[in-house]
Design a protein around this nucleic acid. Structure first.
Lengths: 158, 158
DNA sequence: TATTGTTATACTCTATAACTATA
DNA sequence: TATAGTTATAGAGTATAACAATA
């Protein structure tokens, strides 16, 4: 309390000014806005991730979806339970390996992506980076892609 | 994240290509590397946040630290317990308001920031964005600062 | 009456380990 | 033996509500 601190102009950068800190703040902000906008649908960022992976890759096993998102297979069970309960994905059987499901988007799931999630993403993007020039956006995306895909061969996680 | 997919660009952007997704991936990657590097000290990103806030602002109440990081005051109790247990911060009393603590960095806390955390941050930064030009870094920081400080007057959260 | 720190409690998210049915 | 999905369970991390001391 009474301690009078010195103000040593630090050679090391203040945390609040570091790229890492800003990055976290920006990511949190984006996710927060996104989930707030999705609140009516009670979906999480994570669920969007699953739908997006399926949209890009077609039918996948639960484990494979989890692998791509950095989520354990036991966790995937609950996630798919919810999405299946909402009719957005279906648990088909993989004929080649009857241990595994072939998770696929339902027609409703595809429609949800098309009519709700993608427009919502575009909206949140517009809110956040609408002020940036197309050049800035391209620049940002290029840099983020570098940061998000580590050279060390590590898995991408949510 | 995928392999070598080469698909027709859909009208709606693929999730994996969206700025929001990349942003999350990049932030996760940064935090992950940071915590891995800090593992020996068993500190979390969040703890670094507290120390950083204290370094920047001097002595603060628990509640005020929490407010600045978007953490509830009941959660702050545990965080400060840990940091105090490690001798990195001290619970002084605020003479002006005896309900509140005046949390401050100890000498050890300052030394830890100076000798460990800041160099570590610099190292992780170098790993991640070392390949970027100074211009790119400045650009990135400028954009991130925009994203991280919402105009809508919302609180910054960890 | 309002506020700081505290405690008890509960809820969410996640992973680990054991089980089942296949392979 | 090994693997996909499941289940039970445990551990973080966090928040809400009630309480004591102080404002």
């Amino acid at each position: 309390m009474g301690g009078t601190r010195r103000e040593p102009a630090p050679a090391a950068p203040l945390l609040a000014e570091s790229t890492a800190w800003l990055l976290n703040g920006a990511a949190r902000e984006v996710t927060l806005r996104f989930e707030r906008a999705l609140r009516g649908d009670e979906l999480r960022w994570r669920d969007y991730g699953v739908l997006g992976v399926l949209e890009a890759a077609g039918s996948l096993s639960q484990q494979e979806i989890g692998r791509r998102l950095g989520v354990d297979r036991s966790t995937m069970v609950h996630i798919i339970d919810v999405l299946e309960g909402r009719g957005l994905v279906a648990r088909g059987r993989d004929r080649a390996d009857r241990r595994a499901y072939a998770i696929e988007l339902t027609e409703a799931g595809r429609a949800f992506l098309r009519d709700t999630l993608h427009p919502l993403t575009a909206e949140v993007h517009e809110e956040l980076i609408g002020g940036l020039s197309a050049e800035d956006r391209a620049h940002l995306d290029r840099i983020l892609a570098l940061l998000a895909s580590p050279g060390a061969g590590e898995e991408r996680t949510m």
